[in-house]
Write a protein that binds this DNA or RNA. Structure first.
Lengths: 142, 142
DNA sequence: GGAAAATGGTTGTATGGTCGAACCATGTCG
DNA sequence: CGACATGGTTCGACCATACAACCATTTTCC
């Protein structure tokens, strides 16, 4: 059905409108590279993570994660410590500054999100939120 | 509310799960750089476009668009002709091969989309589609 | 009419990002 | 103990974007 194709194009436009282009700026306007923002989000959520775990969550290649973590460290936002139970692995942990940065990003994200939701008709908001959650789950399984 | 924050994190995961990371591969698995795919989509939809128009639609800097179009041309997918009504501008048009490529991408996108929708509970599908459309419009205005 | 400003493009430079392969260390299995 | 798997790092190839400088054409406005 052509209706579906329209929707697919809409999604493509959505991606662009959201600003996922700029690798060096968060879609929510923060001057932080988006991949770093993703990593920060996961680390802030769960405290310390094995680098391999981070690799899975971010859906990256281990080499990309390695470099990413190094960048975080260079900014003073994270630190690497040997994994306690496995001599091969490392544990990545946010520093206090890193946690702060994550918090700032979360706030900016909240603001941006609120601004968008503000443009969604009052009566539709709940539906949109629910649909987005469902879609995310579906996408996650694919 | 923390419910909203959960949702925001879900969106972040969604972005990653969708595979928008890989610059050199379409989220739908096609071996075409994503920015080229976007351009192809717009051009296939409207025939010929002014390069400046393309710049607006893709939300890029004019310099980025210029390079992007050059790449399309190098692949034999597009051609540049002087704009008929403005001596400064150029008109970008898909070649037959370019149109074919666009069609292939659209099909792959359709398949991927269908696969995801397949994981959405039957009764929710219509809602999800509608919500996504609404959200896209809201985002577009921001 | 003509100078000044705006618009459309191109090219160069600086960044940021991803993957895959090669390589090393540690763990696990038989 | 040897073979194979797993976690990381580094290097090379590629793709993407922005911003600034620069040129040509069109508009604007005096």
């Amino acid at each position: 059905m052509s209706e579906e194709r329209d929707l697919q194009e809409a999604v493509a436009r959505f991606v662009r409108a959201f600003g996922l282009h700029q690798p060096d700026r968060t879609p929510c306007g923060q001057p932080v590279p988006v991949s770093e923002a993703h990593a920060l989000g996961e680390l802030a959520r769960d405290g310390a993570l094995r680098q391999s775990e981070l690799t899975q969550r971010l859906r990256l290649e281990k080499s990309s994660t390695s470099r990413l973590v190094t960048q975080l460290i260079n900014r003073g936002w994270a630190e690497r410590t040997p994994a306690p139970d496995d001599g091969r692995g490392v544990l990545v942990r946010l520093t206090p500054q890193g946690a702060e940065a994550a918090e700032r990003l979360a706030e900016a994200r909240g603001r941006r999100f609120a601004a968008v939701m503000n443009r969604v008709p009052e009566g539709e908001r709940a539906d949109v939120l629910r649909a987005l959650t469902i879609l995310t789950e579906a996408m996650d399984e694919t």
